[in-house]
Design a protein around this nucleic acid. Sequence first.
RNA 1: GCGGCUGUGGCGGAAUUGGUAGACGCGCAGGCUUCAGGUGCCUGUGGGCUUCGGCCCGUGGAGGUUCAAGUCCUCUCAGCCGCACCA
Length: 818
Amino acid sequence: MSTETERRYDPEAIEPRWQAVWERERTWEVGNDAEAGTEKSYVLEMLPYPSGEPHMGHLKNYAIGDAVAHFHRRTGRRVLHPMGYDAFGLPAENHAIRTGELPRDSTAASIAAFQRQLRRWGVSIDWSREFGTHEPRYYRWTQWLFLQLFERGLAYRNEAAVNWCPKDATVLANEQVIDGRCERCGTEVEIKQLEQWFFRITDYADALIDGLDDIAWPEHVKTMQRNWIGRSTGAEVTFECPELGTEYPVFTTRPDTLFGATFFVMAPEHPDVLRLATGTPHEAAVQDYVAHVAREGHEERGDADRAKTGVPLGRSVVNPVNGERIPMFVADYVLMDYGTGAIMAVPGHDQRDFDFATAFDLPVRRVIEGGEELPYTGDGPLTDSDPRFDGLGNREALEAIVAWLDDQGRGHPSINYRLRDWLLSRQRYWGCPIPIVHCDACGLVPVPEDQLPVELPDVTDYTPQGRSPLAAAEAWVTTTCPRCGAHARRETDTMDTFVDSSWYFLRYCDAGNDEAAWDPEVLRRWAPVDQYIGGVEHAILHLMYSRFVVKALRDIGLLDFDEPFARLFTQGMITRDGAKMSKSKGNQISPTTYVDRYGADTARCYTMFIGPPDQDVDWRDDDIAGVHRFLGRLWRLAADVAGAGRRPAEAPDAPEGADLELVRKAHWAIDKVTTDMVGRFAFNTAIAAVMELVNEGYKHRDVASPEAQHFAVATAASLIFPFAPHAGADAYDLLTGDRVWEQPWPAADSRFLERDTVQIVVQVNGKVRDRFDAPADAGREAVEAAARERPNVQAHIDGKDVVKVVVVPGRLVNLVVR
RNA sequence: GCGGCUGUGGCGGAAUUGGUAGACGCGCAGGCUUCAGGUGCCUGUGGGCUUCGGCCCGUGGAGGUUCAAGUCCUCUCAGCCGCACCA
């Protein structure tokens, strides 16, 4: 094979050549005109945050998405596969403070880097729809969206206890606080009482939970969202304090244990705590305790393992089910922002209440039978409660007790959520301005739609000072009220970047529209996203916010669907030596290094071949060389076979011998790759199947006919195309002169998937003793008889009784002997 | 504590409804091509024993169901992720 040494697989030449074709012909652009009879497919990878250069995770993300996009195109769908940049945000601004480089400039530089790399990777993007969320032509509509929500009361301004990051000098959403620390900089957050902007996401708590049932998302992501929303059902029960004549409702998931309540606890932040203690001997102690708790850190207070602390209030409340007076306490294990800020304590059946009762020597009462020791939190019949309920199973009793309280007007069924409203305002510069004007006479006035966008002004000082840097832009801040024309001031806070990214997938559908955020007709043609691909780190934040926005827009009447992402795939992280790659660890690897060395196709294939794409995997330099070797083998075999002349990829009519083996393997590979792509994202095994086909090609190289070889290699090129588009296109072109992306996805011929002989395994007592070939259509009796004939089987059944025979046609025979 | 995921050769990983464990790749060993460079092609490669016919062991661990278990059930260990004093 003298040609082998002459022809070298040269991605440096191949890749730019095909990229030029796709660029010149705008191959991956799609129009918005209706096309009857063609199924649409909207394939989307999460948009990148442009900070520095793209990393390996981006390469993997776009490699996966591109494989899906290509596969969908070649299986007859019209594919929308756009790209954009989540360009606003803190890192660009912090970078600006550090280096003096303007956020606008550093962001632009990073976007240019992404554009360069994405083209160099050969990703099939419709560039005509590209935008950055920081461009006025985009955020004009982000502001419009904000106003839509504002006008329906879904965006509101309110004073509340909020998370404040002292380092970044801005408030944060609950979702951005991890273990009591800022998710960006790791600084411990403080709780401040501030007036801020919120989206009323809690109105959608139930809808967000229920909608999960209708979407094809990984179960663990759904679970995370359900846990985050944290729906608990129970009852609200009112306790009265006769000394002051005040009433305190509590939320409980266990009204069945009401008869076991032996004390009552309020959160230190509860507005009535000081008033209750006033005039009692505990007044000073309560004041001290409340002041002490106020100084406590998030982390300290959140530790469930530390000893319970608290102080008596010197008052008591009446348990509405039995009229018993129980003492009141203030303790920091009760939180103001969940439920009502007060609880009934049932130490017999709750660990925390039990711990508190032990520390303060309070009575512990058993009202549910079961378990050996208290506290017992399981199910069981009621005891020592009330003759009407004693003996009933606790779940049954729960319903009965709530119904009875409801009758008496002392309680009612209730549902509580862990989810809080989405705090969206930020006291930072590099974000979308909130399109609101503060007028002394009219209050909060929306900027009229025809005056959008409210453009982000240039400022010189980004340093966070506890108020938005925009406040320093006096000329910009000063304006007139759109309603009354009086002197007014602009809102100076900007929006959380998660607002920008909560709707970008809608804008791609109609990115060039200057009249509206989108044309409903056009949106109907593309939305929702059929396949969304990205990292799990967005399981809650971005994915829940987007779902909320889409549901809200649907209710407003602007959309006719209510889930943005029909299917979600979460890719695993690429780690280095088992650790997450990061600048600080110095263990980053750059895609450029590997694209330079092996080409984009190799780097792309490797990120998918390394392991199941949804799993975390460790990068190994040795393994990527193996993938490069494979692409070289495929390409050289194609170049070699193409030496016999170009022709269409067609299988020989009636192959025999080596030809038949080769044609069969090709059809097997078609079937394998197709099922791996359709049913699941098993790209690793799909690529392995193409490797097997190429290996088979080499195996039969000197014996198979040129026709059979040609068909097998052209099939391999066709199948590898979604993963290695340049190598696939080039090999296919060498063999056929055709463009592989214009060819329909190959179809497996069932005649070649079935074999006329199959290997039968013979087991004796479940252990494999022999194998033999039998006609595929052989009957049970024939197979069993043949199995018994095998010498090694004979040796194992000789002199024993065959008590049972199991025959699985086409697979095995199991002889059970005694 | 609650919820979820993962444990398979020296390594990454295959095994679609229980039916040949280890596909494919890496690594390693040997061979071939006048082969000087991040080469190419071929063969072998779970462990142990072997009279070279085979035999025994083997999917984190212990039980169980079944003719048959990596796969199903029970318990258990280890690691990772999410939530966490949420009443």
